[in-house]
Design a protein around this nucleic acid. Structure first.
Lengths: 223, 223
DNA sequence: GTTATATTTACTTTTATTGAAAACACATGT
DNA sequence: ACATGTGTTTTCAATAAAAGTAAATATAAC
């Protein structure tokens, strides 16, 4: 399964540019990518031609508006419906709430809402990926699939309970609770779960209740 | 100003994938890009590795969650504040409302809100680009810059009025009204404008009033 | 003016990419 | 079991594309 170096570098560059809201210089970009400056000029020119980057007067390279054009094609209805529910869930549980989806063999965080209060909070970045087997979100998704012989115990348990709880799988000292989106959505091929993540102080039973309720609510809204 | 073919093809592929919410087959993608299937496999593999695409069981290539990770870095506060204002503006004027920004020498549509009612509506796609000199949005942005000798008449006029009106510059039979974001935002290096676009039946004076009010409101909110 | 820095261009070397073909996997039907 | 078709991966030689160096050209800073 070979990949394309040039494309990969370009996408990495895009990622780095995105990490710098006020822009990054070509020179710095070259350092971060560990490649020749001349190459970076060509990469940026190509990104620019596709509206994914642009340059300020000072020469800083910034993320371009084209990225919104792409993102706006991504489940827009889902986002606008889910975001307020997640905010509410974050408030209720005093924890970081998220919506994740299965993509291939991985679990990707699509939307995140952080609680307003609280000194410490576990931040879970949009776009984070990890294997489906790891973490509450992925386990919840697996538990919504038909039972298989090689299912992990956690998955079986989650299938019974309607939600999954994992501790420290993705991050030491973090607890995650998640519940899958069931019903009509599933049949459309979308596999997702709603969950929260917090430090060990999470009131797990209460969170489980809130999370499953939120998942059911969301599933019914998008059916 | 040379570009990189491989990167360009990859980005084109991404764009095409985004246009197909339910996914597109590798074969179709190869046809659309007019390149060998084997290459497309490599492109998709690379996009996949960067979470910008993923494949369903049936093999359809879909837009990946990584795109949200990138987009979430793009002026998130701006978007959440501006979107409701635009919706309101669209309702008031019965026209398609938008927020645009200057990126290099081009004007890019960042956010769009379409009026709910109305049979015909001019749709303006997020991510659309055109020269700053063309269209109400770009003219409005230029009018917020310091006066220059080679400014077009439209720009001078807009600088006086506080808003710009153009007819049929981007699309025959379409009228655009836009007003620049002034104040603190400007000094942060962001150059933007709020506007509406509609068919010739637009009540231009009323729209101009609503648009300038919206621009001022938005500018004050994000200062 | 000088110096420094950023950007583009020119050009050679190298190598990643291409594209065709073949091998492979995996269904579906005969 | 065998053929047929589709989708996917791999192999491999030819080549175009990209890399990287250096030089040329801006552009700004002093």
């Amino acid at each position: 399964m070979s990949q394309l170096q040039t494309l990969d570098r370009g996408l990495q560059a895009l990622e780095i540019i995105a990490q710098h809201p006020s822009g990054i210089s070509i020179a710095d970009l070259a350092v971060r990518l560990d490649i020749n400056r001349a190459i970076v000029y060509r990469i940026v020119a190509t990104l620019e031609a596709n509206a994914l980057a642009y340059r300020r007067q000072e020469g800083q390279v910034c993320l371009g508006g084209g990225i919104l054009a792409l993102a706006s094609r991504f489940e827009p209805q889902l986002r606008s419906i889910a975001q307020p529910l997640l905010r509410q869930l974050a408030r209720e549980t005093h924890a970081t709430a998220y919506l994740s989806a299965a993509q291939g063999e991985e679990c990707v965080a699509l939307l995140v809402a952080e609680p307003e209060e609280g000194l410490l909070r576990v931040s879970y970045r949009v776009g984070s990926r990890h294997p489906l087997e790891l973490g509450a979100a992925g386990v919840a998704i697996l538990s919504a699939r038909p039972a298989r012989d090689n299912d992990a115990d956690e998955v079986r348990q989650a299938r019974q309970d309607g939600f999954s709880i994992t501790r420290g799988q993705l991050q030491r000292g973090a607890v995650g609770v998640a519940s899958p989106l069931r019903g009509a959505v599933q049949h459309s091929g979308f596999e997702g779960s709603v969950g929260v993540v917090a430090l060990d102080d999470l009131d797990a039973p209460a969170a489980a209740k809130a999370v499953t309720a939120c998942a059911q609510r969301l599933a019914s809204l998008i059916s």
